[in-house]
Nucleic acid binder design. Sequence first.
DNA 1: CCCGTATTTCCATATTTTTGGAAATATGAA
DNA 2: TTCATATTTCCAAAAATATGGAAATACGGG
Lengths: 114, 114
Amino acid sequence: MKSSDAVGALSALAQENRLDAFRLLVQAGPDGLPAGEIAERLKLAAPTLSFHLAQLRHAGLIHQRREGRSLIYAANYDGMNVLMGFLTENCCGGQSCRVSPSAPAKPAVKGARR
Amino acid sequence: MKSSDAVGALSALAQENRLDAFRLLVQAGPDGLPAGEIAERLKLAAPTLSFHLAQLRHAGLIHQRREGRSLIYAANYDGMNVLMGFLTENCCGGQSCRVSPSAPAKPAVKGARR
DNA sequence: CCCGTATTTCCATATTTTTGGAAATATGAA
DNA sequence: TTCATATTTCCAAAAATATGGAAATACGGG
């Protein structure tokens, strides 16, 4: 993953409506949701949502499939993984790294939640 | 972490100059780098860099300390962890989650990759 | 072929973000 | 106190992004 791709993916997530949409899709699972329902749940005008979904899609974070008249959007877990990988991969200059979202070298008292 | 905090952190990283600066600091390690050197390496005007560092700092991704006349910036690994945690935490609706750059269900020794 | 539904593209406007010159602030030294 | 260095804050212009009405496109059915 190039740095510019990372910026693209981060930009896509760095907006309230898009982060909401993305998380909605992430939670909706592989089956995804039709654009209309996303718009309804997020209370967004159709063109506005369409614009945001296009951003997420272009960033490789979600994908689209047609089902009859509806366009179904679903999270692209692989794309998300690539981004997460990029963020952790370049951390700490490869040296003694204590960064990691779910598994510190020693899951001490601090990260006990979740 | 609130969704709006996540947007803040993601926005902070979603810009080429800031992502570069952040990664530079991440690789520089806990000792960090003075603003002047960051500006020089990234070839940014001082006010521009100052603006970007303030964004990263406000997002909790880096911190600042004074050393003589210099202001030293360093990555805040904890802040980064919180963001990564938020991103993974809300994925897959807590169900059968196959997301994670390297560890599907067993968050083993993550930092070992590459 | 025509109609209704679902969603997008077009596009102008509104809003937010980025940028760097000039001036201000902070620190240390002579 | 005056000077030089390091960096920030102020501010206004430039650039990028977000928003939604109107029109266009896609599909399925009658």
